[in-house]
Design a protein around this nucleic acid. Structure first.
Lengths: 125, 125
DNA sequence: TTGAATGCAAAAAATTTGCATATTG
DNA sequence: CAATATGCAAATTTTTTGCATTCAA
């Protein structure tokens, strides 16, 4: 664990959900010397293979990293306002079971966000 | 509906699921003059707002387009072998209901793929 | 003829890679 | 000392934009 990786990990922890880009920015603003983008990308990759962080895809262009222990919920991205809600993974247990039974596929609903409309945007439609 | 858009639509129809890039390639191989990428991107956008096609995100780097009437299933992407399975949207009805009840969020499980492990890869682990 | 669509080339944005240097164990 | 990580710059990849030209109603 190098100092750079520690700073990247701290940034991920502070931001809760952050794209590599956001991590680069946050690390640049933490008082120390900025890190080069490649270092951040490589640090995230290393931290992920160490099991310290994980990532989720909120949309097609944004892997967002989070601490590994912050991985047990489903992300709900609103198509209207872009807001990101969460719901307990439990809500998908039945779905995961159905998929397993129907196709043998072991689904991980936390890895990619579910898109749709939040309560506010849905009621406007 | 211009001839270019028709060719783009034909390519989407023939490929079933295709990234913009793949559409550019397919259209270039259909015998006619190749279309410039910008035309394909704009045609897909136009066809989508006309309701003729839709898109799904299979991974973070690939919006895949399909005919609009080919939109009622959930995509299952295997992390092991990359294979894309499908399952009926019905399997997720309970999940969508749970999410709605818990958060008011109207989920569309067809828009982004679910990641996990296919039967074969799952049994190897 | 009037607005929309196309093609091209250049611009952006987001990652990735090569390689010399610095760091870690 | 040997292996790994970093920083920088350049290369890739994917998508978007500006603008002159062409097409269609």
């Amino acid at each position: 664990m190098t100092p750079q990786r520690q700073r990247v990990l701290d940034a991920v922890s502070a931001l809760a959900h952050a794209t590599p880009d956001e991590v680069v920015t946050a690390v640049g603003a933490d008082g120390g010397t900025p890190l080069s983008p490649s270092t951040v990308y490589r640090a995230l990759e290393a931290l992920e293979s160490l099991g310290a962080v994980g990532h989720t895809h909120l949309d097609h262009r944004a892997p967002t990293y989070h601490l590994a222990d912050h991985a047990d919920h489903v992300h709900l991205v609103c198509r209207g306002c872009g807001r990101v809600d969460q719901c307990d993974r439990e809500a998908a247990a039945g779905f995961e079971g159905n998929v397993l039974q129907a196709t043998g596929f072991v689904a991980d609903v936390t890895h990619m966000a579910i898109h749709g409309w939040c309560r506010a945007c849905a009621s406007q439609r």
